[in-house]
Design a protein around this nucleic acid. Structure first.
Length: 489
RNA sequence: GGUCUCGUGGCCGAGUGGCUUAGGCGGUGGUCUGCAAAACCAUUUACAGCGGUUCGAAUCCGCUCGAGACCUCCA
């Protein structure tokens, strides 16, 4: 019924049938954040994309080990592997221990991820906790002859690697082009070639984050952490490696080179890359300083935001675009997502009120299959959502007695929406938080009073009640079965 | 400059050779309602431009224009 899953492999630039290396187990590695600032909308995309992948694979019955790292060291501030470590810089500025910064922003990142309802990874390793593994891998690359030591630093020899392998097979780069186009930068005199990258960097005296090694007191290069940690927890050759498209080159390309030289294998079978979120057509990112943090979205406290947007609105907004397409931020688009999501949830509440008939006039099996087909086609969540909205129309028609549904189909309908909306898309109803017993009792009383007024055709009173409640963001809707109410922040 | 990607209706956003009314939001008309809201029904506007391949292209090819990504930290 679920048929086969196809996913787009960046390595082949084609959709490929997904076949787990060691079924039912699947290894999934995703590049996580560098924790030196609050997470923004751009960070939400890979988190939600691969959360969906994680959820769907589990739904299909796979036992998934999902590893998402936290980069807390070795990520350099500027050009040419010569800059100051990002974490270290922030720490000095704020007179804090580096690990204090890491803890602070990790906590905030986790809180945001929980708000977005992403499942926790199976393992969330930190680069700083795997210095030994990174040193060991660097040694293997040195011993294999694909790296060289200069002044206490170790660099990967890209040119030599390219003699036997293809540096650029993932990103489509050609080394000759890289030679022609790599900018001349200050302070990379240690490197044989400007496109060589650091495996280990000797720490300058002002660096406050450094570890001892046989080469120098220093810190690991940028790319080695993912290679070291993924091979440690998922093996030298695992199923899926994911991340943002901006990491394709040089980060992921270099991971391949490291794995090939240290382990004689590609790190993984499938490479998946999510596209960027843009704002005004430009990539939202730290470097352009055009980002809006997730906390700002949740509070509405940003000059570009017309209102606050709930975590689920953000999640739905992201899922309404395919993960490989760019997605442009705008208030209008977010509002549309917010309203669409509400419509979906309203219909799901309606499902519980449906009364089954002897037979169905609607085809639920087809709907369910369409949902699976969409997900199996490279996790096409926007098409899935379109099918779910088709189902909304069906649900409403049944509720209006224009269509009928059998008991059996009603079970399928309930399961389909539960599975796809809650389990796979990871959406959840956002309670207002104020609907406790007392307010429910109060509202019942108020509605009863208003009902009495209506029966007496005292519409000025009934309308006054409705208008006054509206000021409190409580909406009264009269239905055939009496009035219902709805509160939103 | 090099490599790559993209350009769909008022907005967002699927679709890659021949029926998709894709879907959402918005608009319009209607049903329902004391009036609303919600819901339902109907409806509206597309494939950047030019040329080519083809019986047939939004979809393939070429060119032009425009936008973006990577090449340096970035999800």
């Amino acid at each position: 019924m679920t048929k086969e899953l196809f996913l787009y492999n960046t390595l082949s630039r084609k959709k490929e049938l997904f076949e787990a290396l060691n079924p039912p187990h699947v290894g999934l590695y995703v590049c996580g954040p560098t924790v030196y600032g609050d997470g923004h909308l751009g960070h939400a995309r890979p988190a939600i994309t691969f959360d969906m992948v994680f959820r769907y694979l589990m739904h299909l019955g796979y036992k998934v080990r999902y590893v998402r790292n936290i980069t807390d060291v070795g990520h350099l501030e500027n050009d040419a592997d010569e800059g100051e470590d990002k974490i270290g810089k922030k720490a000095r500025l704020e007179q804090l221990e580096p690990m204090e910064i890491v803890q602070y922003y990790s906590d905030r990142y986790h809180k945001n991820m929980d708000e977005l309802n992403t499942l926790h990874p199976s393992i969330e390793p930190r680069a700083s906790g795997h210095i030994i593994e990174q040193i060991e891998m660097t040694k293997k690359i040195l011993n294999a002859g694909f790296a060289y030591e200069v002044n206490g630093s170790v660099y990967f020899d890209v040119e030599k690697y390219n003699e036997k392998h293809n540096y650029g097979k993932l990103s489509g780069r050609v080394l000759e082009d890289l030679k022609a186009n790599t900018r001349e930068l200050e302070g990379q005199k240690d490197k044989r070639n400007p496109f060589d990258f650091a495996l280990w960097k000797k720490a300058q005296p002002e660096h406050i984050m450094h570890w001892p090694s046989q080469w120098s007191d220093g810190f690991p290069g940028w790319h080695i952490e993912c290679s070291a940690m993924s091979s440690k927890y998922l093996g030298e050759y695992f199923d899926i490696h994911g991340g943002g498209m901006d990491l394709l080159f040089p980060h992921h390309e270099s991971e391949i080179a490291q794995s090939q030289t240290a382990n004689n294998t590609d790190p993984c079978k499938y490479w998946m890359h999510n596209n960027m979120i843009t704002i005004g057509g430009k990539k939202m990112g730290k470097s352009l300083n055009n980002f809006i943090t997730l906390n700002e979205f949740f509070t509405g406290d940003h000059k570009l935001l017309g209102q606050a947007f709930s975590p689920m609105s953000i999640r739905f907004f992201i899922l309404q675009a395919h993960y490989r397409s760019p997605l442009d931020f705008s208030n209008e688009a977010l509002q549309a997502a917010e309203k669409g999501l509400k419509r979906l949830f309203t219909a799901m509440e309606t499902i519980d009120k449906l009364t089954p008939s002897d037979d169905s006039t609607v085809n639920l099996k087809e709907l369910s299959q369409s949902c699976y087909d969409a997900m199996n086609d490279d996790f096409n969540s926007p098409v899935l959502i379109a099918h779910l909205f088709d189902g909304v129309r069906i649900i409403n028609s049944i509720n209006d007695k224009k269509e009928t549904i059998s008991k059996e189909d009603l079970v399928l309908l309930t399961k389909t929406y539960h599975d796809f909306v809650f389990e796979i898309l990871g959406l959840k109803a956002e309670s207002s938080g104020t609907q406790n017993d007392l307010s429910a009792e109060l509202m019942n009383s108020i509605i009863a009073i208003r009902q009495k007024a209506k029966e007496n055709k005292d519409y000025s009173t009934s309308d006054m009640i409705r208008d006054e409640l509206k000021k409190l963001n409580i909406t009264i809707k009269d239905t055939k079965d009496g009035a219902i109410w709805d509160f939103e922040d």
